[in-house]
Every structure is written in structure tokens, then in C-alpha cells.
């Protein structure tokens, strides 16, 4: 078993005064893939928002440690530089900011945080080209504005492409399978699998078993009404598919 990467203890969080997370406990070790499943409104996306520091949510109790450090005390950008990555369910379009400019800024901020020198433009472009191949993304992407005019599939591939560039230690994939056809799903899942190392981990938030045929989890957790009510191995996902959430939780 790998070292402890993320520890969530009794996490409570609310939005607009309404409590969504009601005491989540979870330990994730290096090298593990955890799937979080659950019905709509269970708090799956809230969990990813809280872990990444989305200012719309308020943490009312509990703690989260990333490699022993207080994650909740860090600004969103510091969490990102420390290696927490969110593949957004709805990636944001940013007109006028090119992918190249965006990605270079992000990568160099992370490198500065790690005490590394900024990449030269040439090194950066070589890296972009290499990582784009992984997701079968076209070269013309560089000059386009971030996510602007991208199809649903391209947006999700672009998320995983950014993940490949930033090499996070903890990747949270929030409904990455939603809106993907089977080919795009395969490419995205293969990308995620190839980025897996013994030192990093991922949280795969999904509604359906389908994605888990491609990204095989070590653990499956059922989140219902703001708490993890059941944990099992990958067979739990199949059981859920068969019996529905009501049959399990």
C-alpha cells in the first residue's frame, strides 16, 4: 500500500446556508483509484468543489490533509500547484485567452512553486505536442481560446490534456464521462490510465458504471445525502448498476 496522500475527516460543507456534505470520511493512498458514485444531489460535485477551494462553498466542519498538510487553508491556486487537479464537469470557455498562453502560465506557476525554472518556449511547445498526441487532440488547438467553440468531447479531452501537462498527484475527475460518445470516452480513459503512476491517485466521480469499465477503481464509494454510506471494490459498481442506489444505500 502506498503512502497516505489525502485524508478527509468528518467534512461538512454548505452552499448558501444549505448543508450538502454531512460528515465525509475518506483516506486515499498513493497509487489508488477511488470511484465515488451516488444519486443526483448526493454531494459528489460539492466534494470536488470543496477539495479544490471553490469560493461558492463554505466548509463548516472537519479537515482535509494533503500529504499531512492542511489543504483547506490553501488558496485554490496553491492547492493546484501542490498537485490537486480537477477535471471540470463543465469546463469554462475563456474567450481571448489562448490555450498556449493559459497552459504556459499555469505550468510555469507550478514549476516556480516547485523551485524549478520556467520552460523555454521551445521546451514548452515540444511538451504540448507530446501530450496532445496522448489525447488525439489537433495541433490547431494551441491558438484557440481556452475551450471556446470546443465540442463536448474536445472539452473533456482538453481537461485530460491539461492533467497530462500538469502531472497532478491527485486528479479528481468530475463526471468526465458525461456527454462523451464511446470513442471519446475510450480516448479520455486511456489518457487517464496512461497518466497513472504508483505515486499519484485519482477520484473518479461518476453516475454510471460505464466509465469504470475503462478506468478500473480499487475502491467504490457510495455517497448519499452528504455521507459515504457504503464502500466496496469494483463489483459494488456493478451491483449498483443492477439494483440502483435505493437497493444499496
Amino acid at each position: 500500500m502506498g503512502k497516505e496522500l489525502l485524508v478527509i475527516k468528518n467534512l461538512h460543507a454548505s452552499i448558501g446556508g444549505k448543508e450538502i456534505l454531512k460528515g465525509v470520511n475518506l483516506v486515499i493512498n498513493e497509487g489508488e483509484v477511488h470511484a465515488i458514485m451516488g444519486p443526483n444531489g448526493a454531494g459528489k460535485s460539492t466534494l470536488s468543489a470543496v477539495l479544490t477551494g471553490n469560493p461558492a462553498y463554505e466548509v463548516t466542519a472537519g479537515e482535509v490533509l494533503l500529504r499531512g498538510e492542511n489543504l483547506l487553508a490553501m488558496e485554490p491556486e496553491v492547492r493546484a500547484r501542490a498537485g490537486v487537479f480537477l477535471s471540470f464537469q463543465y469546463p469554462v470557455e475563456i474567450p481571448g485567452v489562448s490555450m498556449t498562453n493559459f497552459m504556459r502560465t499555469a505550468l510555469n506557476e507550478k514549476r516556480a512553486y516547485e523551485g524549478k525554472e520556467a520552460l523555454t518556449p521551445k521546451e514548452f511547445l515540444t511538451l504540448m505536442r507530446e501530450k496532445k498526441k496522448l489525447l488525439e487532440l489537433p495541433d490547431k488547438l494551441n491558438n484557440r481560446s481556452v475551450n471556446e467553440g470546443f465540442s463536448g468531447g474536445e472539452k473533456k479531452k482538453n481537461e485530460i490534456f491539461q492533467m497530462a501537462m500538469l502531472e497532478p498527484c491527485l486528479a479528481i475527475l468530475d463526471e468526465t464521462d458525461s456527454g462523451l460518445d464511446i470513442d471519446a470516452l475510450r480516448i479520455v480513459a486511456e489518457g487517464v490510465n496512461r497518466l497513472k503512476t504508483p505515486q499519484n491517485a485519482s477520484i473518479v466521480i461518476t453516475h454510471y458504471q460505464r466509465l469504470l469499465d475503462y478506468i478500473v477503481p480499487d475502491y467504490v464509494h457510495v455517497l448519499a445525502d452528504g455521507q459515504i454510506v457504503k464502500t466496496g471494490d469494483k463489483t459494488l459498481a456493478l451491483e449498483l448498476e443492477e439494483k440502483g442506489y435505493e437497493g444499496i444505500a
Binding site: T52, G53, N54, P55, E75, P76, E77, A80, R81, F85, L86, F88, P91, V92, E93, I94, P95, G96, V97, N101, F102, T105, A106, L107, E109, K110, Y113, S145, V146, Q162, L166
Partner: peptide, 29 residues
Amino acid sequence: DESALFYMQQRGISKQKARQLLVNAFMKE
């Protein structure tokens, strides 16, 4: 756009730098 600011912060870009990128994008036209 607050959601664009957060998206950029989630990639490690400081809030100030993210603002700068959005303002420049607005003026670029």
C-alpha cells in the same frame, strides 16, 4: 467572469494573474 477566474486558479494561476489574462483578453480586440 468568476467561473473563468476559478478555472484558471484551479490550474495554478494566481488570482491576480488570472485577472490580468482576462482583462488583456477583453482589450485585445
